Amino acid sequence: MTAELAAGGESGPVAVLANPTAARGRHRALLPAVLDRLGAAGRPVRLLTAHTAAAALAACHQAVADGAGALLTVGGDGTVHLALQAVAGTPVGFGPVPAGTGNDFAERTGFPADPLAAVDVIAGALRAGRSTPVDLARITDAAGATRWYGAVLAAGFDAIVNERANRLRWPRGPRRYDLAILVELARLRPRHYTLTLDGIRHDLAAVLVAVGNCASYGGGMRICPAADPTDGLLDVVVGGPMTRRHLMRIKPRVYQGSHVTDPLVRSYRARTVELSADGIIGYADGERVGPLPLTITAVPAAVRLLR
C-alpha cells in the first residue's frame, strides 16, 4: 500500500544523517554520490552534522521540528534506530540508505541492498510524492519512557553477549564480540521469564528471547523468520532451556530461519508483549535499551517509507 506524502512533505527539505563510521567506514566515499542523486530529485538537501549518538538524535529531532519533509540515513541499523525516534508517528517520510554492517530494517522493508540503488528508489519516491506506511515497535520501560525500533528486540543470550562486549576494553573490533560469546557460553544458564502476550501470561525458562517487527537482526540472522512489518503484530521467538552444544548447533540455522523447527524453540504472535526477567538488558536494532521489564507494542503504519 502506498500513500501520498502529507502536507509539507512534498516541499520541505530532505535532511540526511550520515554515519561515517558505519561498516568501519567502508561506504564513506558514497556520501557525495548520495547527495548528488538526492539533489537531482528537485528538493533542497540538508546534511546533518553530529559526532556522537546523542548529537545525532538531537539533530534528527531538530530537523523534524524545523519542517523537514523527509529524513534519510546513510548507515546501518544503529543509525536507522536514531532517526526512527524522530520520524515515528509523524508524516515525515523516511529513507534508509543501507551502508552499515547490519542493514536489516532497510532490507526487510523492501529497499535494495546496494546503497546507490536504494538512493534511486528514495529519490523516485520523493519526485512522485509517494510513501509506503510500515509498522514499528514501541517500547515502554518501567518508568513509562518510550522508544521505537524497526527490526528486532533481543532479550536473551544475544543481548547478554552485547552487554558483555560493551563492557570489555580489550580486544578491539569484532574479536571483542567473539570473546564475549566465549565468556557467556561458559556462563550459559536458562533465565526465568514472564512473558505476557495480549494479556495472557506465560512463565517459562529460556536462553533466547527475541521480539520481532521484522524478520532479522545482526546482519541477516532471521531470528523471527515469519515477522511481517505490515501485519500490525509482533513475532516472539523463545529458545527454551538448552545446553551450550545445542545452542551452538542451532545458531547457524538462524540465518535461514530454520531454527524455529527445533523442538526447544517456540514462536508466538501478539500485538502487545510484556517481558520481564531479572538481570537482563534489552537491545533493540543492536542498540542498548535498558533493563527488563519492558512492554513492546506493535504500532501499525508508524513510519512512512520513501519507496
Rank of each mutant, 00 (worst) to 15 (best):
I139P: 00
H246N: 12
L305V: 01
C214N: 10
A151V: 03
T2I: 07
G67V: 00
G129M: 01
R169E: 06
P91D: 10
G102I: 14
Y255E: 03
L30F: 14
D36A: 14
P300C: 06
L30Y: 15
R245T: 12
A128T: 08
G75P: 13
A301S: 08
D135M: 08
A23S: 08
A70L: 04
I280G: 02
L197R: 15
Q85P: 11
H61C: 06
R249F: 14
A106C: 15
A54C: 10
L188Q: 10
L17K: 05
A68G: 06
T243P: 05
D114V: 11
A22S: 14
T90E: 07
A145C: 01
V209I: 06
G9W: 00
A165S: 09
G9H: 00
V152M: 02
A145W: 00
G218Q: 09
T132K: 05
S258Y: 08
Y268I: 01
V134N: 01
G286A: 10
E10N: 00
A33N: 07
R147E: 00
G232V: 07
P263M: 07
L84H: 07
T21Q: 12
H61K: 00
T140K: 13
P263W: 06
D158M: 12
A6V: 03
D262F: 09
L195G: 03
H192Y: 13
A118C: 12
V80E: 07
A270M: 02
R271T: 03
P171I: 13
R172E: 12
E163V: 14
R249M: 09
A284W: 01
I250A: 15
D77L: 11
H192V: 15
R222T: 06
D135G: 07
A56K: 15
V273W: 09
A53N: 10
L126T: 04
M1V: 11
A186C: 15
G212S: 04
W170T: 14
G75C: 14
A180S: 15
A3E: 05
